Simulated assay, not measured.
Amino acid sequence: MKRPVALFAGALVASLVTAPPAEAAPATGGVAVTVARFAAPGAATRAYTYDTALIAPGAVVVVVATPTRGGTRALLSVRGLLPDRTYGAHAHQHPCGALPTDAGAHHQHEVDPAQPSVDPAYANPANEIWLDFTTDHRGRATVATTVGWRFADRRAGSVVVHAQRTATEPGKAGTAGPRLGCATVDF
């Protein structure tokens, strides 16, 4: 049963890279899918751009989150961003909103009692969903990660794209610069 979901997600992303449909957010069988075009806060519904120089309105974002045996696989695909540029990206606590801070902090499986979390014991890619990526010469990228846990009573609400690759050193762990864009995902 898990293999057809993975094939579906792969086929969905492949088809969207060439011709994304209207915005969608179907959630079936535990799979969360967001397909959207980034828009300025006044016009956005599921994907917001907060810095139009780094994420242009109309750029495409696809997020697919799939439960796996004992974990969660998350895939992020983008099209229409700046070419040959590295971005940070993470699952955040809340849905996107007009303000970059509306998405809240990073979703953590085990929550750091000290917030904002910059302790690598909590702010790390095993305890959070990190999806950093570098676009190709056409401004496209696809990245995936698998964490060893599933969402339970606390679920993430979005994936936020940041200006820089995610830091890992103590005192800065999990930071990735300003929030450039946000895609609401029904994890």
Rank of each mutant, 00 (worst) to 15 (best):
Q115M: 14
G80F: 13
G42H: 02
A167N: 09
A91Y: 04
R150G: 15
L54G: 02
D186F: 06
T45R: 11
Y87A: 14
A39E: 15
S117V: 05
E169C: 05
C182F: 06
V61R: 02
G70S: 11
G97E: 08
T135S: 14
D84T: 10
E23T: 05
R3V: 14
P41N: 09
H107Y: 15
H94P: 00
A126P: 00
V78W: 12
V35W: 03
P178C: 07
A141K: 00
A40Q: 12
G157Q: 03
T86D: 07
A9P: 01
P113I: 02
A152R: 10
S158G: 10
V62I: 09
N127G: 12
G181H: 01
E128C: 08
H90D: 05
P20G: 13
F133D: 06
L82M: 13
A36R: 04
Q164H: 07
V118P: 02
L75M: 08
F8Q: 09
F38M: 12
V31Q: 06
A27S: 14
R138W: 11
T66N: 07
R85E: 13
P21R: 11
W149N: 11
S158C: 04
V62H: 04
P95H: 10
G181N: 06
H162K: 06
G177C: 12
A36Y: 03
A123V: 05
P4Y: 08
P4Q: 03
M1W: 03
G177L: 10
D112T: 04
P26E: 12
L75K: 03
